[in-house]
C-alpha cells in the first residue's frame, strides 16, 4: 500500500470582499492524483504560485481538499478523528526558520511537538536527544535559536519534527532563505534521514539541482500535476520545463547542446561526473574508429 495517496484533489481558494461575498475563486489544485510509496525521496518542482505548497499543506491536513481525497497511511484527512495522528505521521518544515521555531532554546523547541502529543516527560527528553543527534545538532542543545545560522535553524526545525516520530517529512522550500552552505547542510540532512532512517521525504523546491538528487520528481504548473518521473526522465524534457518557467541543471543543458552538435551522449547526465563519463566514452569510441 502506498503511504500517501491523493485522488482527484481539487482545492478552491475563495477571495471575498468586505461583506464576505465571494468575488473570485481560484483553483489552486486541479485533480491531483498521485501515489507515494514509503521510503521514497520525492521532489515537488514548480515555479512560485504553481500550487506546490498548497499540495504540501494537504498532506498533513493543514488544508483539506474541496473535492477528492488525500489518504495518509490509509487515513482520510477529511476525517476529524485522524487529524492529530496524520499531523504526527507527516511532519512539516517551512521556508522561514524564524517563523516556526517556538522555543527560546534549541531543546525546548524540539520538545514542543512531543509535549503537544502528551508524551511522558522522561520519553520527551530521550526523543529530543535522539532527534538532535539525527540532525547533528547535539552540541547546540542549549543555544538560543537566534545564535544559529540559517542552516542550523532549519536542522533544529527538522529535529522538532523528528521528535514526533513521523514517517513522512515534508520540506516546504526549506532552503529558499539560506546561503549555499546552509542549503547544502539542509539537503544533506534530508538525504541522510531518507537513506539511514527510511523516512519518506517530500522536498518542495524550485531549485533544479536540489531536485536532481530525488528518486522521483513531480512537476506542478498552475495547479496541475504535469509531469512525474525520475530526474533523468524529467530533465530530458527540457523544452516543456522551459515553457513553464523552470530550467534544467547546468550540466544537463550543456549535454543537450553537445548532443545537438552530434556528440553521442546515451544517458541524460545529471551530474558532472556522469557527463565526464559519457564524454570519456565518446572520446574513446572516436579514437578507436
Amino acid at each position: 500500500m502506498s503511504l500517501i495517496e491523493t485522488k482527484g484533489v481539487q482545492h478552491r481558494y475563495a477571495r471575498r470582499d468586505e461583506e464576505g461575498n465571494i468575488i473570485q475563486t481560484t483553483m489552486a489544485l486541479q485533480k491531483i492524483t498521485c501515489e507515494i510509496r514509503a521510503g521514497e525521496f520525492i521532489a515537488i518542482l514548480g515555479h512560485n504560485g504553481s500550487g506546490k505548497s498548497t499540495l504540501a499543506k494537504h498532506l498533513n491536513a493543514l488544508l483539506l481538499p474541496s473535492e477528492g481525497a488525500v489518504l495518509i497511511d490509509g487515513m482520510d484527512t477529511r476525517d476529524d478523528e485522524n487529524l492529530w495522528h496524520i499531523r504526527q505521521l507527516a511532519g512539516m518544515v517551512f521556508q522561514n526558520p524564524d517563523n516556526q521555531i517556538i522555543g527560546q532554546i534549541v531543546e525546548e523547541d524540539v520538545g514542543f511537538g512531543p509535549e503537544n502529543l502528551g508524551v511522558p516527560t522522561g520519553e520527551i527528553l530521550s526523543r529530543v536527544d535522539e532527534a538532535l543527534a539525527k540532525v547533528d545538532m547535539q552540541s547546540r542543545r542549549y543555544s538560543s535559536p537566534s545564535k544559529l545560522s540559517g542552516g542550523q535553524k532549519q536542522r533544529v526545525s527538522i529535529a522538532g519534527v523528528l521528535a514526533m516520530k513521523p514517517k513522512i517529512l515534508i520540506l516546504d522550500e526549506p532552503t529558499a532563505m539560506l546561503d549555499p552552505a546552509g542549503r547544502a547542510e539542509v539537503l544533506a540532512t534530508a538525504h541522510e534521514l531518507n537513506r539511514r532512517d527510511g523516512i519518506t521525504v517530500l522536498l518542495i523546491t524550485h531549485d533544479m539541482d536540489e531536485a536532481a538528487g530525488a528518486d522521483r520528481i513531480l512537476v506542478m504548473d498552475r495547479g496541475h500535476l504535469v509531469m512525474s518521473g525520475t530526474p533523468r526522465e524529467i530533465f530530458a524534457r527540457s523544452e516543456e520545463l522551459t515553457a513553464i518557467g523552470l530550467t534544467i541543471p547546468t550540466v544537463t543543458q550543456i549535454a543537450e547542446i553537445l548532443r545537438a552538435h552530434g556528440i553521442t551522449i546515451v544517458k541524460t547526465p545529471l551530474t558532472r561526473q556522469e557527463l565526464t563519463e559519457a564524454l570519456t566514452a565518446y572520446a574513446f569510441a572516436l579514437h578507436n574508429n
Binding site: H47, N48, A176, H206, G245, L246
Partner: peptide
C-alpha cells in the same frame, strides 16, 4: 534574487 524562482 533571493527567494525567487528561476524565471524571476
Amino acid at each position: 534574487t533571493a527567494g525567487l524562482d528561476p524565471r524571476g
